[in-house]
Design a protein around this nucleic acid. Structure first.
Lengths: 340, 340
DNA sequence: ATGAAAGCGCTAACAT
DNA sequence: ATGTTAGCGCTTTCAT
């Protein structure tokens, strides 16, 4: 066993209370005791044990983070932002991924709660219907959603306005002359933001009197290959869309590769618009057009919001609110004008 | 305060020991008590408090992870691998980033140790000269390095053979006819693997009697732009290398963008080889040639190794060893043959 | 300024 | 099968 304040106290010839005082408010300890204790700490290689401290305090200065995957850069960047902001405030971060499995969300949260994290930052499958969030609400555990943008429920969250952003991106494609615009997405039931983006797409199409096409829904939200059926459609100039609006950049880049593989050129044969604005998109040739989200900022703001909720438990004051951060439609060479 | 086993015991009309037993070895509790306790747990919304358990047990079933950044996908993938493997074994993960700052490494580790993590998975600046690792060695804290490949010291690690891998990649370029091959890297002093890759480069060049060129060393290991001085060199067909070997894929993709910006074509004017094999490299056009590391596997193996060390403290048995995982030189269109 | 002591939640040894 | 109890490391009254 490593040394505790007990052995330090013994070594320094003081009581454990005095050691604890030196650790917490050094001013309340005589200069003499202080130096003896510090020496004892040095000699023994003492390191405070947060487990004891936390048990006593009922707090852990630790926050939990639950996201679907780190394979998608946005979540990695967000986690990065959370961690940076947490470290600045002397908070630690416990991390979990769910692989987009809804049933894993509750297990992950349960585990974090057992560890007595002070709060949780998370992205769930569906923020408006989540038993996991119900639990957190009921037990008054501070939490902040990231990327989710609850519509029906008042839940603290940080995101961009998915629908408006998608609307803006699709409107841009329409303004470029595109008429057959189709959405490409992972399973909608696994991502409420993807669905919201679809709503934005649909709204834009409606507003311009354009036909809403059935989205291409593929099994995964990360690297995915188009099925041969879908490829078959793309081979037909009359059946394929002239522009694709993808629910995220990974899918956009994947489909661009697939299109190249069957001899189609981006943007000449098909324009491609992504969502997320991952840094690597800017390095592509052609550069990926995308709706950029400030992922690291989302993480930082979520952490700040969470810490505020943790440290100022003024409870239900002011309804839980969605914080919308600005998005930017980033234009690159993957999109061009369309002339019929 | 949330309910503890104490209130559960009270509610169920049993002693706290019985509650604890139900939680740990349910078989040792009568069917009658069990149901009463379970009901009490339900009613009170009891959730075990790991803080108490950990304090008592002297273990936390938590591992710490320290990497330079999540901006580089390799570390995100590795963390993903660690987390997946940890969850399978009912371990939790505490995560920290250092931004390549050596001084942040020790602070991060100190914090993790205060939290009494059972072990640490980390990537350090220099695995052969790290006071942080010295501390872990001295205090017998189980740890496993990832990506680092210690040369002088016997330290547990999981990585590819950086030198051999670089040697192989550069030899490939040489076999394609390249003569002026230059390395592009972030600061060597911030990454021992980058330096090892340079050694591999140098060895390959020597073996073929080719001139070792001074590496282009740029400030950051992630997204970086070439300085105008360097760009000037690339504008001159006689001074620029015909092939670039980059210490990681982020730099490779960045430099490809910079080269395009000044009108050079990859691979026609300059061939580019990366390192890491990030998934997005395969989606590029031309596809990025790279030395692929099995990042997720590295994370998983590191976690398995760490857990073994934690749970079977057979101490210094068998010297700490480096586990080398196979790399693959992935060939893509970013590299072509060179004819003088 | 310092010490004694209680107690945070839990497990395990011991007793019954 | 169950209860009693000590103690993990720490902070914080309450005394002195």
């Amino acid at each position: 066993m490593r040394p505790s304040i007990k052995q330090v106290a013994l070594e320094a010839g003081v009581s454990i209370a005095t050691v604890s005082r030196l650790l917490n408010k050094p001013d309340s300890v005589s200069i003499d005791s202080a130096s003896r204790i510090n020496q004892a700490i040095e000699v023994l290689g003492f390191r405070p044990n947060f487990t004891g401290r936390n048990l006593r305090a009922g707090r852990s200065r630790t926050v939990g983070v639950v996201v679907p995957t780190l394979s998608n850069t946005v979540f990695a960047q967000c986690l990065q932002g959370v961690e940076t902001a947490a470290r600045q405030r002397d908070y630690s971060v416990m991390f979990t991924a769910t692989e987009y499995r809804q049933q894993d969300e509750s297990a992950a949260v349960e585990l974090l709660l057992a560890h007595r994290v002070d709060g949780i930052i998370l992205t769930v499958t569906n923020a408006d219907a989540s038993s996991t969030l119900d639990v957190l609400d009921r037990e008054r555990i501070p939490y902040v959603l990231v990327y989710n943008q609850p519509q029906q429920t008042a839940r603290p969250s940080v995101s961009v306005d998915n629908r408006a952003a998608a609307h803006e991106a699709v409107s841009h494609l329409i303004n470029l002359g595109h008429i057959r615009i189709q959405m490409l997405s992972g399973q909608f039931h696994a991502s409420d933001r993807a669905l919201q983006r679809y709503h934005g797409y649909r709204q834009a199409m409606h507003e311009h009197g354009l036909q809403v096409l059935t989205p291409i829904e593929i099994p995964r939200h990360t690297y995915a290959a188009l099925s041969s059926e879908h490829l078959q459609i793309f081979r037909d100039p009359l059946r394929r869309p002239s522009a694709l609006f993808c629910s995220n950049d990974l899918l956009a880049l994947s489909v661009m590769r697939d299109l190249r593989a069957i001899g189609l050129r981006v943007p000449d044969d098909v324009s491609v618009m992504g969502f997320d604005g991952i840094p690597l998109g800017e390095l592509m040739d052609p550069m990926l057009s995308s709706v950029a989200q400030p992922s690291e900022q989302i993480g930082k703001l979520a952490l700040r919001t969470l810490v505020r909720a943790i440290e100022e438990p003024q409870d239900g004051q002011g309804p839980a609110s969605t914080q919308l951060l600005p998005h930017t439609v980033r234009l690159g060479g993957s999109v061009r004008t369309f002339h019929s």
